[in-house]
Amino acid sequence: MATADSVAGRTAEDAAPTREGRRPHSGRRPRRSSTRFLLAPLSFIAIAVVLFALFFVWPGALGLWYSFTDYTGVGTPDFIGLDNYVDLAQDPDFYYSLGRTLLYTVLSVPLHFVAALGIAVLLTSTLAKGKEAARVIFFLPWLISPIVAGVIWKWLFGENFGMVNFLIEAVGGKGLNWETDGSLALLLILIVSTWGGTAFNMLLFIAAIRNIPQSYLEAAQLDGASSWQRFYRIVLPLLRPTSFMVILLATIGSMKEFAMVQALNGGGPGTSNMFIVQYIYRTGFERADIGYASAASMVLMVILIVIALIQLRFDKRNDLA
Rank of each mutant, 00 (worst) to 15 (best):
P24I: 15
K256R: 12
S193F: 03
P17F: 10
M260T: 02
D319G: 12
L140S: 04
I252R: 05
A53G: 15
Y95N: 08
Y104G: 05
L123R: 00
T283V: 11
V151R: 09
W142H: 12
A207M: 12
T3L: 14
K154S: 09
A120S: 09
F79P: 06
G130L: 05
I280K: 01
T271E: 09
T69S: 09
I47G: 12
V106L: 11
L190K: 04
Q214D: 13
G81L: 11
V109I: 05
G81P: 08
V299K: 07
G73Y: 06
E179R: 11
T271D: 07
W228P: 05
T194E: 00
D93F: 14
I252Y: 08
F56N: 10
F231P: 01
P110M: 07
A116G: 03
G158V: 03
A263D: 00
Y279C: 02
V114D: 02
I168A: 00
I290N: 01
L107K: 04
F231C: 01
K256T: 08
R36A: 15
I305C: 09
I206Y: 00
A40I: 13
L42Q: 13
N160D: 13
N211M: 11
N165D: 08
R240N: 14
W228C: 07
W195A: 00
I189W: 01
A263T: 04
T101L: 04
G268I: 02
W142E: 06
N165Q: 09
T18G: 11
F275R: 00
T72L: 03
S215W: 05
V114R: 04
V277W: 03
I252P: 01
T126F: 10
A293H: 03
L111C: 09
A8G: 06
A134V: 03
D223T: 07
P24K: 15
L143P: 01
R240P: 09
G267C: 04
S243E: 05
Y216A: 00
S243C: 06
K129L: 14
S294N: 06
I303L: 15
